[in-house]
Design a protein around this nucleic acid. Structure first.
Length: 647
DNA sequence: CGATAGCAAGACTTGTCTAC
DNA sequence: GTAGACAAGTCTTGCTATCG
């Protein structure tokens, strides 16, 4: 009860009231208002008009806005997208109606601004015609990248940084979180582990309410996903979470703490008494995409998009998905139910098949059967732990992982790349002497793919990529794909030639497709073969020898990139080098064994030291990456590379 | 002919990402 | 830390078909 001078009711001053009214909107909205005001002011300044538009009357403002909408440009002089121009208009409206200006008119709705708004419509129509009306949605992470990421050292749970990355990725994915919303505010108690009474499964659940974009002050409903355990899986998100929380620094209450750069696995604490900065959390997925060499740079929002897309493709209804993502309307979910390119291609092929068959007087297929989209296959929620589709399911069944990496040697059984390359080179040389040095367009041949053991090009490419040594470098992977394409093409060409084509016809066909010189392609394959197959073997021998000399008698304490080895004895690490890829070995040789390996330059040709040899390999590995789109080398370049490398 | 359900489009706010 | 550009998402309005 109020006593003495204390009063029952508040004593809000006018100033405080204005301040509170100003804060009705979210901070981001206020920022948007301010920016819109600045943009208009900048326009007036450049046009040499009075910049105090806040004091204009409605007639003058109407006139100025009409001109502004037509002439608004970005600082670089380019046009805005429609969404940006709309944002500026709404921002200006809020800016003028908020304190301290408190205008009572609306520049969007009031008749006094009709002229300006007609101009706005005209401006957006023009932008639409210019192709600036589209929305580029944040991409969802493709299946190959997901698998690559999850099985890489960057998500290895036996290191502080790997564990941190995996747990954060899991939480972003399972709870379909927005990119950076409240991430830096999370504490050790934001999430907790519980046992579900119905299933007996352990699940990680969000334990505290929070204010988000769609769930603000008056919202009492809470929506969130859960993260269930995946029993007997090394990828179980609950075990990772429990381990992560147990290793956090007890002095700090934040959930995301900076991983220690060096550690022993038996240490109680793997993390510094220092939270990960807000900005660092912002670039979580983009940094990870770069480190793990994913096929593109994803953003944090991509993880949310991926979670929602996976659920939507797996027969969960809008209401169920909304309970996880926190969406309020079904309409909003349509962003995640887009028809992808591959599906569009399949639909196009279906139409082509039907047209071709009809033209060939084949029996017509029911139109409903042809136009129906492929039905999504139901999968259990467990599969979210390591997203799996039909093609990767087969791969996962067979591929043996050791220490988070793939035992590629098993997959080279029955597919001797050396033999294929040998035959390729030999035949090419013979052909080059007697036939035109041209080749037909690259195309895949079902028979050749079948011979390689796969059922579809996609699946076969996945298996080969997984099975190929030095597979962690995405750029090298692309070249491996080119080589696979060349092999298939070569086989197709040979088969085609033997079965159906005379020499004259072959030459005629070649003339029709003067795309890339055969010699140039052969050269490219030979260099790739040298760099991908032979060079790593030599470097590996060197790596093992130097490692033995350096580390066998000393405790293993390497740099952060080697953290995933730290639980092992020197002998284990020695054996693991067998699976290291070229870039990783180069990194270790350079940073841990302190060899002088240069970047982006060639050593003097007279320099025959080990360091110089490694620099050459490093240089040309990058060189073939730069030539990835052409898949060919001219003879001069080839001779130069071949002589340098094969010494 | 008025009431109303269903839907699409428009209006509006808030968050993300990136560069400096 | 800040600003700019723009995507994501919700709420509101207005049109149209249908029904009684």
């Amino acid at each position: 009860m109020a006593t003495g001078s204390l009063k029952r009711f508040g004593q809000t001053t006018d100033e405080e009231m204005m301040d509170k009214r100003l804060k009705i909107n979210a901070a981001n909205t206020l920022r948007s208002n301010k920016k819109a005001g600045n943009t208009l002011r900048e326009y007036l300044r450049e046009s040499e008009m009075d910049i105090r538009f806040e004091e204009y009357d409605e007639v003058r403002l109407n006139e100025i806005l009409g001109q502004f909408y037509m002439n608004a440009r970005k600082p670089d002089g380019n046009h805005y997208k429609i969404s940006s121009l709309e944002n500026i208009r709404y921002g200006l409206n809020r800016y003028l109606r908020s304190p301290p200006y408190n205008k009572t008119f609306s520049i969007i709705k009031d008749a006094a601004f009709n002229d300006a708004n007609v101009n706005f419509k005209a401006a957006t129509s023009e932008l639409k015609r210019m192709g600036l009306g589209t929305t580029d949605h944040y991409p969802s992470i493709n299946e190959t990248d997901l698998i690559k990421l999850y099985s890489s050292i960057y998500c290895a749970t036996n290191t502080p940084s790997g564990l941190y990355t995996k747990v954060q990725f899991d939480i972003r994915m399972y709870f379909c979180r927005r990119g950076q919303e409240n991430m830096h505010l999370m504490t050790k108690t934001t999430f907790g582990v519980e046992t579900d009474p119905a299933t007996g499964l352990k699940v990680v659940r969000k334990m505290e309410d929070e204010m988000t974009k769609n769930h603000r002050e008056t919202d009492k409903e809470e929506s969130s996903g859960v993260m269930p355990e995946v029993k007997d899986s090394p990828y179980c998100p609950v075990s990772s979470f429990e381990l992560y929380v147990s290793k956090l620094n007890p002095e700090n209450n934040r959930l995301w703490q900076r991983p220690r750069s060096s550690f022993y696995s038996t240490d109680d604490t793997w993390y510094c008494n220092e939270p990960v900065g807000e900005k660092k959390l912002t670039v979580f997925m983009s940094d990870l995409s770069k480190s793990a060499n994913l096929s593109q740079i994803y953003t944090n929002h991509s993880i949310r998009a991926t979670g929602a897309t996976i659920l939507s493709k797996n027969m969960y209804g809008p209401a169920q998905i909304m309970a996880v993502t926190g969406h309020k309307s079904v309409q909003s979910l349509t962003v995640y139910q887009r028809v992808g390119n591959s599906e569009k291609i399949k639909m196009g092929q279906t139409l082509s098949d039907n047209l071709v068959k009809k033209n060939n007087a084949m029996p017509a297929i029911s139109s409903t059967a042809i136009l129906a989209l492929p039905a999504p296959e139901p999968v259990s929620c467990n599969q979210l732990a390591l997203p799996i589709t039909e093609s990767s399911a087969n791969a996962n069944e067979n591929i043996q992982r050791e220490g988070g990496r793939i035992d590629f040697l098993k997959y080279l059984d029955g597919l001797d790349l050396a033999d294929v390359f040998g035959e390729y080179k030999e035949n090419r040389c013979v052909q080059n002497n007697v036939k035109s040095e041209t080749r037909t367009c690259m195309q895949s041949n079902p028979a050749a793919i079948q011979k390689l053991g796969g059922e579809s090009l996609e699946q076969e490419s996945y298996l080969l990529r997984s099975a190929t040594p030095d597979s962690s470098n995405a750029k090298i992977l692309k070249n491996v794909n080119i080589i696979i394409g060349l092999i298939k093409d070569y086989e197709w060409e040979n088969n085609h030639e033997k079965e159906t084509t005379t020499d004259n016809q072959f030459e005629e066909n070649c003339d029709k497709h003067l795309e890339v010189s055969k010699t140039d392609n052969g050269n490219f394959v030979r260099v790739c073969c040298l760099l991908i197959q032979i060079a790593p073997i030599a470097v590996r021998h060197l790596c093992k020898r130097l490692f033995t000399e350096t580390h066998v008698e000393t405790p293993i304490r390497l740099s952060i990139d080697m953290q995933w080895c730290l639980n092992d004895s020197a002998k284990d690490v020695y054996e693991k080098i067998e699976n290291f890829d070229l870039p990783l070995m180069m990194y270790i040789l350079k940073h841990d064994m302190e060899l002088q390996i240069l970047d982006n330059e060639l050593p003097d040709s007279s320099d025959m030291t080990i360091d110089a040899d490694l620099t050459r390999i490093n240089y040309y590995a990058q060189f073939i990456v730069d030539h990835k789109t052409t898949g060919s080398f001219d003879s001069i370049t080839f001779n130069e590379i071949w002589e340098t490398l094969s010494q």
